[in-house]
Design a protein around this nucleic acid. Sequence first.
DNA 1: CCGCCGAATTGATCTGTATCAACTGCCTTT
DNA 2: AAAGGCAGTTGATACAGATCAATTCGGCGG
Lengths: 231, 231
Amino acid sequence: MIEPDGHFCSDCAVRATAVCSSLDRAELKEFERLGRRVSFAAGETVFSEEDITTSFYNLLEGVMRLYKLLPDGRRQIVDFALPGDFLGMNIAGRHNFSADAIGAVTVCQFAKTAFGRFVEDRPHLLRQINELAIRELSQARDHLVLLGRRSAEEKVATFLLNWRARLVSLRGSSDTVPLPMNRQDIADYLGLTIETVSRTFTRLERLGVIEIIQGGISLLDPARAKALAAA
Amino acid sequence: MIEPDGHFCSDCAVRATAVCSSLDRAELKEFERLGRRVSFAAGETVFSEEDITTSFYNLLEGVMRLYKLLPDGRRQIVDFALPGDFLGMNIAGRHNFSADAIGAVTVCQFAKTAFGRFVEDRPHLLRQINELAIRELSQARDHLVLLGRRSAEEKVATFLLNWRARLVSLRGSSDTVPLPMNRQDIADYLGLTIETVSRTFTRLERLGVIEIIQGGISLLDPARAKALAAA
DNA sequence: CCGCCGAATTGATCTGTATCAACTGCCTTT
DNA sequence: AAAGGCAGTTGATACAGATCAATTCGGCGG
């Protein structure tokens, strides 16, 4: 964990998309003093499930895996976080999932109490955080359907399409889809084993739907992928 | 769908637990005019996934199933709703799941716009709704772990314990656990088939953990159930 | 009280995915 | 360039849970 130099919210990479997007110039000035940039190396844990929440985080750069562990070590990844995502909202004062850096990561960290005080008398910010929570809830429900009712092939196809959609809305369109997470991460996100994910990837490649490339895939036939993803 | 007579919030059954619990006497008076009681018969659909959201609902009496359907008819129940639960929060103006009455149900229905206006200048209510969303999000994540990483036996045991816990916090402790939903509902909640649920129930009964009774189960050995539910 | 009907249970078999085990290929280290 | 190691792939086999098929149970109408 490294703490880089000071910064300015006004030229932050996620200024337009993150929670802070609803703040006006004056508020931003004040807000600036609440957060500090912190970097994590690949594989480092930013916070753990059992930890008492003392900070919120705005992901600025990199990708994170958010997950829960069972006592015997089985892992379920509940989400991948991308730049602009806000982490740490919780009940009962404890994080209810863990968060690791996948590759190098930079976050904007806020002390919980100071952040809470700042939100206190800014209902528009609260409203935005609420919308965020509801959006995540909706995503989580889609994920429930995926885990509970879809086959391995549907799971993988859906994952690739959704992941691509997120990257597109972040970086713009492209048919090559980088996959910074490894096969085990994908398996733990989809409720599968690493072998099944691998086999499904090769099957999709043989069908001409994707091409497996270094650090990701190339989506050769999006329409076909959509057909495999739906029912 | 039947619309019963007028009512008073002050003697509402869910007054203490529902969203309206954060309202003071004066606010409640005003709030009263926003909601109207509506009843649904067993099996009726209160709202559907694709519907444009025009109302929010406070469940007053009965149990509901909240679910999503795949195009080919596969169903995933994302939650069961109990009295005091608030339904309808969404993004993009559309419900993102459907809601059926299991047995007879009474809800307190609010027009979305009027409710929105009421919340507008009452940050404490917004804060409560936010907390609600975050609590649901946390629950949804637990459900993800259940669906993605647990065996049939663990799923069923966990479901019974969680369902009992919800009923306990609503009606007080008891070792007989009513199950108003049918086996298909349980199966669709747990990502299993009806046969697997049934077999798992009988296995748990043979193990002396539960007894299957009319309309529910009796939890004979809670400690053993907890052991089966964990890993 | 009888017969009907949907829900639940039980049984037999099948299959998708897990598990166990090797192998491959790529990056890293020296 | 060789060696080591980890991520990913591929193969063989096992098995949990799905599917297909009766059968039983319990509530309800006549």
